[in-house]
Amino acid sequence: MSFAIVGFILIYPLLLIIALWLIPKVVEHKYIRRIIFIVWFLIPTWDVIIGYPIYKFLCATQAGVKIYKTVDNVEGFYVGEQSKKYEPREPYEGYKYVDYKEKESGKYYRSYWVDNNTSKDCVHYGEQKFGAYADAYRSGRCIVKEEIADGEVSRWRLDSYSIERQKRVLAIPLLDFTHQTPLLIQDTKNSQTLGQLDYYWWSGGWLFRRFSSFSSGSGGVICGDDTSEITFFNTTLKPTLGVLHGNN
Rank of each mutant, 00 (worst) to 15 (best):
D72W: 02
P91Q: 02
G64Q: 02
W113I: 09
F37Y: 15
E102L: 07
S216K: 11
Q192H: 13
G204M: 05
I67H: 06
Y12M: 09
Y109T: 01
Q180E: 12
V153I: 09
G51R: 06
W46A: 14
G126A: 12
K120S: 15
F57W: 15
R157M: 14
F214V: 03
L20D: 10
N117Q: 11
I23W: 02
W201C: 01
K189P: 02
R138T: 12
I230S: 13
K25R: 15
A60S: 15
W46L: 11
Y137V: 04
I32Y: 09
L10N: 12
Y55F: 15
W202Q: 03
N190T: 13
Y68H: 13
Y161N: 14
V123F: 09
I67C: 10
N247H: 15
T45M: 03
E127H: 10
L42I: 05
T178H: 02
D72Q: 15
L170R: 10
N73A: 10
P44E: 10
R110Y: 06
C59N: 08
I17A: 14
W206G: 07
S216L: 05
I32P: 02
V79H: 01
D99S: 06
E81C: 03
L16T: 11
L10P: 02
F208C: 00
V144A: 08
G205L: 01
H245L: 04
V48S: 07
L194H: 09
Q82W: 07
G204A: 04
V123K: 14
S216G: 08
L183W: 14
T227S: 12
G246Q: 11
A4R: 07
E229N: 11
K103F: 06
K66D: 11
K107R: 14
D121Q: 13
Y52P: 00
F130P: 00
P88W: 01
G126W: 13
G219P: 00
I54N: 02
E75G: 08
I67D: 09
I185Y: 00
L174W: 12
I23S: 01
G219V: 04
